[in-house]
């Protein structure tokens, strides 16, 4: 579904990602684990076309999207829930979700999105900026789903969210995957959350993928070792 190979990304002169490669199957959830500053956000932004990919190739469903602009990538089926949520704070909850509908020309919000997040349905008319952190996270996911994606990217979705809500989030993401056959790429520092949802776990260190485990034979201690400061 998503194929990334030999990806080099730099800010100005300093290269941050040094030839990353991985692939994600249809309906698969992968977690990319790493400490702060290892390049998780940069990877997500490069996949979204927010920072340019200097070398390498990104394919989605066989279509090369390496040189595409953000909105063209969304059209090809990639959606993004950024670190810090980045919802449109002056727009209402409903309008926030509707911004995701333009790319497919969907006339109105599909009901299953509000079914996933009943809280948002109750707060339709509130300004996004006035929601709590957990609600903003749900809104950011709803907005991404409104674009009708094949691959969903989430950058540290658990950051700044209470433990009880993190469990709900894991359940929701698995549910979305099962319902829609969506592929999900999630970057994380919280190991328990990643173990809870991921089919495969990668570790990123200084812009390289240094470790990979399948769910069946996960080496928890080793991954925890990478994450320890």
């Amino acid at each position: 579904m998503l194929d990334v190979s030999g990806m080099h990304v730099s800010y100005g002169q300093s290269e941050v990602l040094h030839g990353l490669g991985f692939n994600v199957d249809r309906g698969e959830i992968i977690a990319i684990m790493g400490r702060n500053g290892m390049g998780k956000t940069t990877l997500m932004k490069a996949l979204m076309g927010i920072v340019p990919t200097r070398e390498g190739k990104v394919d989605i469903d066989g279509t090369d999207i390496t040189q595409m602009k953000s909105f063209q990538r969304v059209k090809q089926g990639i959606a993004y829930v950024p670190q810090g949520r980045m919802i449109f704070s002056t727009m209402t909850v409903q309008e926030n979700i509707e911004t995701g509908l333009f790319v497919r020309g969907t006339p109105s919000i599909p009901p299953d999105i509000y079914e996933l997040f009943p809280v948002l349905s109750e707060m339709k008319a509130r300004r996004g900026g006035n929601l709590s952190g957990g609600q903003q996270q749900q809104l950011a996911i709803a907005r991404a789903l409104a674009t009708g994606p094949k691959v969903l990217l989430l950058d540290e979705p658990t950051e700044g969210i209470q433990p009880s809500i993190i469990r709900d989030l894991a359940r929701t993401l698995r549910h979305i995957r099962d319902e829609r056959g969506l592929s999900i790429v999630v970057s994380e520092q919280v190991l328990s959350f990643a173990l809870d949802i991921a089919d495969r776990v990668f570790v990123i260190e200084n812009g390289r993928l240094v470790h990979e485990d399948n769910r069946a034979d996960i080496d928890e201690a080793k991954i925890a070792g990478f994450l320890a400061v």
């Binding site: 969304v74 449109f88 911004t99 790319v103 991404a144």
Partner: peptide, 23 residues
Amino acid sequence: GWGKRVRAVMSNRTMAGAVGIDT
């Protein structure tokens, strides 16, 4: 619809692109 796009871009240009708006 145009207004919604405009307000999204005003609020966060990068993110507007990342939800599929041709900014």
